[in-house]
Design a protein around this nucleic acid. Structure first.
Lengths: 192, 192
DNA sequence: ATCATTATTGACACTATCGTCAAGATTGAC
DNA sequence: GTCAATCTTGACGATAGTGTCAATAATGAT
């Protein structure tokens, strides 16, 4: 290595993640990224190629954090309690910031029609992995549930988390989202 | 009236709706609208002012159709059967076309951060009205449900429909969405 | 200390979209 | 049939974003 990078890559990606989270893949511009990170546009092109390459790195960082936090929240002897912690975590996650940033995965999924195969694949991956985490958490409960049922239910729960993300974008407050989550858990999980 | 409009306004809005449905408010351009409708860009500006005014008209047309169809599907003596018909309707609605168009309301909700107050308000309105339709349908069932419970549950169901719309964008097929809806109804409604 | 290599910088060309406007075309009203 | 009002048309300027490139600067390796 001779000419050496003048910026910290991890820090750069973390800042880029913030920009993408607030603006979305589609609406965030290279100028936005340059302004936020203090790295010139030309340097970004040189270092990463294009905007989507930067997004993929930032998104990977995001999903890593997110899935870890989800796993932690879900790890609880009592499946219902774990789910409650999990829902609380994602609701805080999507209502954080001012204005709230929403859910990056959901926003990206909706942008996906315009995006590349790579982006679509990442979205599917994170949803699948989340489904597996949830399936494991509810499967190991005081199970009178079959494995097939747990798997189906896990996907329903993932779907509901996506619904909450949309409701947040529609203007529902953190408190309203918590109530929505509570009603859902009461209806689906405890009764199932 | 002297110089008279050279195009059919209803037809124009219907075509615009198709464009917005496929591309989204944000990504559809006036050029797209002009090309699809055969009306020149300048004429569209003259007739409506800007893109968002056209969108609002198209969206109103859409929500009118949508809510009517939802009401029809839900009108059933058996609340669970009505819900099944309702979910089937929205799943067909969002997976129709090739490639599927998805759910316009959900897409618009996600765009909403960039959009005007008017657009945001329309999205909230359609969700609220849908919630009311569902509340009425499940409330009039063989109710051992309190009115407050029915209301809460209705909002949960609306939220779940939004989740299905996101899952569709993430790549889930009509068949998978139907299974997701079925599992949800079994878990939430029949057991509640 | 020199050099070869890489990063940075700012300018450039290109494309897309927007919104406006003046000139021309059309047509209902009288 | 004339006219005034309205619509249509095509061109224009402005803005924003993309990706590229040549010139410059910096630095690890020798």
């Amino acid at each position: 290595m001779v000419g050496v990078r003048q910026f910290d890559e991890d820090e750069m990606i973390a800042t880029a993640l913030d920009v993408f989270w607030r603006k979305g893949l589609h609406d965030a511009t290279m100028q936005d990224l340059a302004a936020a990170t203090g790295v010139q546009r030309g340097s970004l092109y040189n270092a990463y190629g294009d905007k989507e390459a930067i997004f993929l790195r930032a998104f990977d960082q995001y999903t890593g954090q997110f899935l870890e936090a989800a796993g932690n929240a879900l790890s609880n002897a009592d499946a219902a309690a774990g789910l409650r912690r999990f829902f609380d975590m994602i609701i805080v996650n999507m209502t954080d910031g001012s204005p709230p940033r929403g859910c990056l995965t959901t926003r990206t999924a909706l942008d996906a029609a315009i995006s590349s195969t790579d982006v679509r694949q990442r979205v599917q991956d994170v949803l699948t992995r989340l489904e597996q985490l949830i399936g494991k958490a509810i499967g190991t409960g005081p199970g009178k549930r079959s494995a097939a049922d747990a798997s189906r239910l896990a996907r329903v729960i993932v779907t509901y988390t996506r619904g909450l993300a949309v409701m947040e974008r529609a203007g529902y407050s953190r408190k309203q989202l918590r109530e929505l989550a509570g009603t859902f858990i009461d209806a689906v999980v405890d009764n199932a």
